[in-house]
Design a protein around this nucleic acid. Structure first.
Lengths: 170, 170
DNA sequence: ATTAATTTTCAATTTATTTTGAAAGTTCGA
DNA sequence: TCGAACTTTCAAAATAAATTGAAAATTAAT
């Protein structure tokens, strides 16, 4: 396999993975493309390489910027914008975790809190308590997950996968 | 809010969360419904409560069974099948992790391994090395994630969120 | 063996998501 | 200030995913 071919396959594979993680295929592919590019790429280059429309390219580069997975790079003397991808896979993971938490876990926990406002405690005592326990368990689990990911978001990669992993895995 | 209302809201919220995690809405809703049910439920009851078709109910109860998130329960003297949901949120998390790993992470890692079979090492030496490093980084990250989730899959809930969390969070 | 009860399948439909592309908007140099 | 270069928007079209429902298959009682 040649390098260029391998890169193409990588872009495809990353796109497929993205789909499974709530990131649309194009967004993941652009990100992969930016990860394997030596140079910043323009919208036109992205359109050309991935064979997608301008609208699509524009929407998804902006989504990547929102997520912190890419940034704009202005080249002196060039009018056009160029894009650079975050290449540190640790940072990529941290940004995805942060974004998903904001969009999914936080709202879930808010919902759980609302659900605890049940006012027929006296009726169906046992059933009520079981449901309450389920809500508490879920919230407790989410809380632990939050704490782990907090650590990850704040920690340095080497600390996390060095020191901490040793504690865990040993 | 009344208990029944809270349960309905919970089923909805769980359904929404599911969508974000690659589990379709109905599957997540059935699972939520089984979690909050005191009794095993029949396909007809699930259809009735969630207002879905028989085909849909059947497909998704079976999917839940495949994932290990529900099981069939035969009632003596009853012809119909009933379903019981896994209610231990720790076990639920472990089963989802295991299933997603099987379907997504394992294939990705296999792809990464294939991509390493590049035969133009000599050309474009530096570019080749950078790409190789990216693949290694991703694989290393996936490996660490695997190890953490292995621990989770094997560990006891209390150990994991007791002992281990203390080590991590402190 | 018959048939009534129940489960499974799957083509057709519905719903949700993504993509296109052209028009509108913006920016900047001359 | 004009206009070319470039970016953004968004309604319509295309694609993908979930759902229906009725027919086929299976199961179990008589």
């Amino acid at each position: 396999m040649k390098l260029e071919e391998a890169k193409r396959n990588f872009v495809e594979a990353w796109g497929t993975l993205g789909t499974n993680w709530g990131i649309n295929r194009t967004m993941a592919q652009i990100h992969a493309l930016l990860m394997v590019s030596e140079q910043p790429l323009s919208t036109d280059e992205i359109m050309e390489i991935l064979d997608i429309s301008r609208g699509n390219a524009n929407m998804n580069t902006r989504a990547l910027i929102d997520w912190g997975l890419a940034e704009r790079k202005i080249k002196l003397g060039e009018r056009m914008e160029f894009f650079v991808g975050e290449k540190d896979i640790w940072k990529v993971a941290v940004k995805i975790i942060r974004e998903r938490r904001k969009r999914e876990i936080d709202p879930l926990r808010a919902t759980l809190r609302d659900l605890k406002m049940i006012d027929d405690k006296e009726d169906k005592k046992e059933e009520y308590q079981k449901f309450m326990k389920l809500l508490d368990d879920i919230d407790g689990f989410a809380d632990s997950a939050d704490k782990i990911t907090d650590k990850m978001v704040l920690a340095d990669k080497n600390w996390f996968f060095g020191t901490m992993m040793k504690l865990m895995i040993k």
